[in-house]
Design a binder for these strands. Structure first.
Lengths: 245, 245
DNA sequence: TCTATTATACCGACCGACGGTCTATTCTCA
DNA sequence: TGAGAATAGACCGTCGGTCGGTATAATAGA
């Protein structure tokens, strides 16, 4: 095997890319280290030069996910025109938007993300994302409490609930994929839509707001996400986004 | 090695017992099949006579947990004297009681349950418990909606939220153990106590009840759970409960 | 009741694949 | 030119799982 030397950062990112693809398609446990290094075209030694273990690779992958997600919401946080409620809604809107885009651009990724064998991977990503987002949410809620918009005695607790709600859709979506038939999908869409309404009202009331203040997604947005697959069946977009890195 | 033949059900239960002990102390991934069969004193072949895989063993373990948990709340469901709110509170009280008892009798088990390496095990148990409890909760809430006690358009969603809240304490408790120092523990107790209050009010409002209707735990109950270790340091109770099977 | 037969419980050597280690080699750059 | 970063790949112990086989229990026919 010829020796190929690349810029370390590039090599590292490449490794993460291949690991991501393999972990998503086969699951963290089933995708072996040999698979990863074979895909990346490097040796065991080279791999262990960059990562201390397979576990560390997963860790780094989760961190990268969280970093990317965090980068997407920086502008919302910096916008001085927004009041706490507006900021919270903007944050929720951003994450909703990210979901729609992911679904449209890379349905396969979106779908594999919710398969049971990806539990470990999914949990790690969520963990990293939570750690990153929690302080932001707490700060927003605290500001809202200070200026009287929100009423609660436990901003950290409310922030946790917000994130819980965000992740809880996972189970419902997973069920939608588990079914498979169009009828199952239809039921799942309606269930999820109803659930989103419930979460909105729950958050309104937990924060002491009038019903209808919190907007997680406009009516029909769930259907937009779930049917994005049919609307955009061509894999070209996904391929393009892959090439462009 | 002499060949010992036991009643199949007994052998199966024994295997589950040893697996439970090893999975809890070392984690599902780190506890090897060889460890399990060595502890149980049987051969590989015997193991695979009872379980199709290590995964199936985990599955069976989770099922057993769920079955035991379910058995503990049957009387509450059958009590015709309770109205929906009373039934819901009784159910929450039962699960609280179970937690306190577990903490007092087998603190070690309680503690290991919340270690990060037990994520997979924990998740499976929760999954099984959720599957078992969800229908019960849905039924209670549906009854409450019918007789006008509760007001919600999504009983399934509310049931999910109730269970989410129940599991969410996991993260907070895990943090308490992660710290270790008495000061950390004190902070964790206060955080958890506050969180329980938040969950109570959140459920009140989600269900359209007056604040204070839902009772997850009386004030001080969290401290009772968390300090049970010190109050009952002797391992005799745990040993007794082990023997009695 | 005494076999013959089948079904069940059990044994342990063995397997391929896994994550991880180690030494050797080659490249880069001060 | 020498130090150290980057890469290669043989090698290791352990893992979950398989397999051919054996001992015991259960059943049936005579």
């Amino acid at each position: 095997m010829p020796r190929i030397i690349k810029h370390p950062e590039l090599r590292r990112e490449e490794l993460l890319d291949h690991a991501q693809a393999l972990f998503l398609t086969h699951g963290y446990d089933k995708a072996s280290l040999n698979d990863v290094i074979a895909a990346a075209g490097i040796s065991k030694g080279a791999f262990y030069h960059y990562f201390a273990s397979k576990e560390a690779l997963l860790e780094a992958l989760a961190e990268r996910f969280a970093r990317q997600a965090l980068a997407g919401v920086q502008d919302v946080l910096g916008d001085p025109a927004l009041d706490p409620l507006g900021r919270l809604n903007a944050l929720l809107a951003k994450s909703r938007q990210a979901k729609v885009e992911t679904a449209a651009e890379a349905w396969a990724l979106f779908e594999t993300m919710f398969r049971p064998e990806n539990l470990v991977l999914f949990h790690r990503i969520n963990q990293a994302a939570s750690a990153a987002f929690s302080p932001l949410l707490v700060e927003i809620i605290r500001q809202g409490v200070e200026d009287g918009t929100f009423r609660t005695f436990d901003p950290e607790g409310v922030a946790d609930i917000v994130m819980q709600f965000g992740m809880a859709t996972h189970g419902v979506i997973a069920k939608a994929f588990a079914g498979g038939s169009d009828a199952d999908m239809e039921i799942a869409i309606e269930t999820l839509e109803k659930r989103v309404r419930l979460y909105e009202i729950a958050l309104d009331r937990i924060l002491g707001l009038p019903d209808g203040s919190i907007r997680i997604g406009e009516p029909g947005y769930v259907r937009a996400v779930m049917t994005a697959r049919r609307a955009n069946p061509s894999p070209s977009a996904a391929a393009a986004s892959r090439k462009s890195r």
